[in-house]
C-alpha cells in the first residue's frame, strides 16, 4: 500500500506516482567489485561457476558495478568474506565517484561508518595516499573497522571526533561529508519510517548538518573538492544546508557528471529561495535510478 509519507514532495519529485510505486518494489542486489583484491572479470567468472550471474548496471563504470538478480544474500558468499565484493547501493557508490580522490591524495571522510564509501575511495586511490576516516559513535566503529579490514584497505587511519569539530590542524585535498540525515531515501531499503517525523531530532539534525558542512569547507585545501551528501529528499537537509554554506563562505558548486540520470537541485522550496548554483547539485530518485534516494553537491573554493 502506498502511504502518504512523501506527499509533501509531490511538487518537486517528477512522475510522483511512479516514485511512490518504486518504494514498494524491493531493492535490487548490487555489488561493487573490490578492485583492491580482484579483477572484476575474474570475479564475474568465479561467481558464474557458482551459478550466480552478474549483470552490468550500466555501460559506464561497468568495471565495478554489478547487479545480481539471482542472489539474495551476498553476505553469505565466500567472496564476501574474502573481501572480493561489497554490497552497496548505486547512489552510495556515486558519492565516492563524484569526489574521485586521486591516488596519493589526502582525504577526510567526516562520517565514515559503515565504511562502504571509505573503502570505495581507497579503491579509487589504489590504496595510496591517506584517508582519515572519522566516526564519532563507538557503536559504529566495529562495522567501520570490519569493512575496511575485510576489503583490504591499507591507507586509512580512524579517528572519532565530532565531525563538526574536527580539528583544524591541516587541510585536505578531498572531503566527503556524508552527513547524518533523516534517511528518507532509505525507506525502500529499510522499510522503516524516516526519522523526519520526529520534530526534535529534525531541528538538531539541521543544525548539525550546517555545522558539518561549514567545518568540512574550512578543512578544504585551496584547490580541494568536497562532496556534501545525504540519503534524504528533504530540501531542508539538502539545498538549504548548501545554501547556508554559500552564504557564509566563499564556496562554489561544481558540476556533477556521473553518467547517471539525476534531477538538478532545487532553487525554491516552500517560500524559500536558494542560491542559483544549487541547480548544479544532484537529486537521485529511486524510480529513475532504481536505488536509494540521494542528494549530493560538489563543492570547491571560489577563486
Amino acid at each position: 500500500m502506498i502511504d502518504s509519507t512523501f506527499d509533501c514532495y509531490s511538487e518537486i519529485i517528477p512522475a510522483f506516482s511512479r516514485f511512490q510505486e518504486s518504494l514498494l518494489r524491493p531493492m535490487p542486489v548490487r555489488l561493487r567489485v573490490n578492485g583492491l583484491k580482484i579483477e572484476p572479470e575474474l570475479l564475474v567468472q568465479m561467481l558464474k561457476e557458482k551459478g550466480i550471474h552478474l549483470k552490468r548496471v550500466t555501460d559506464r563504470r561497468d568495471e565495478i558495478f554489478f547487479e545480481a538478480p539471482d542472489l539474495r544474500s551476498p553476505g553469505n558468499l565466500l567472496e564476501y568474506f574474502i573481501g572480493y565484493i561489497h554490497p552497496q547501493a548505486l547512489t552510495s557508490c556515486l558519492a565516492s565517484i563524484a569526489l574521485s580522490p586521486k591516488p596519493g591524495s589526502h582525504v577526510l571522510d567526516m562520517c565514515a561508518s559503515p565504511g562502504g564509501k571509505t573503502s570505495h575511495m581507497a579503491q579509487l586511490m589504489n590504496n595510496s595516499g591517506l584517508i582519515v576516516a572519522n566516526e564519532l559513535y563507538p557503536n559504529r566503529h566495529i562495522p567501520l573497522e570490519n569493512t575496511l579490514s575485510r576489503l583490504g584497505v591499507l591507507n586509512s587511519v580512524l579517528t572519532s571526533y565530532q565531525a563538526q569539530e574536527f580539528p583544524l590542524k591541516q587541510r585536505f585535498d578531498y572531503i566527503l561529508a556524508d552527513v547524518p540525515c533523516s534517511g528518507e531515501g532509505r525507506v525502500r531499503k529499510t522499510r522503516e519510517s524516516p526519522e523526519h517525523n520526529r520534530g526534535h531530532i529534525r531541528q538538531k539534525l539541521l543544525d548539525l548538518q550546517k555545522k558539518i558542512i561549514i567545518r568540512g569547507y574550512d578543512l578544504l585545501d585551496d584547490h580541494g573538492k568536497m562532496v556534501y551528501a545525504t540519503c534524504t529528499y528533504n530540501p531542508d537537509e539538502n539545498e538549504s544546508v548548501v545554501h547556508f554554506l554559500l552564504g557564509n563562505r566563499n564556496a562554489e558548486l561544481l558540476p556533477i557528471n556521473l553518467g547517471f540520470h539525476y534531477e538538478p537541485g532545487l532553487t525554491k522550496w516552500r517560500g524559500m529561495t536558494y542560491d542559483k548554483q544549487l541547480k548544479k547539485a544532484a537529486r537521485f530518485y529511486p524510480h529513475q535510478i532504481d536505488s536509494v534516494g540521494f542528494f549530493m553537491a560538489r563543492i570547491g573554493r571560489r577563486r
Binding site: E145, L154, V157
Partner: peptide, 18 residues
C-alpha cells in the same frame, strides 16, 4: 609524509592489523 600528517590526530586504528 602521510604518517606525519596522521600523527597530528588522535587516532584509534591505523591501516590493517597484520
Amino acid at each position: 609524509p602521510h604518517i606525519i600528517r596522521a600523527s597530528q590526530f588522535k587516532v584509534w586504528r591505523v591501516g590493517l592489523r597484520s
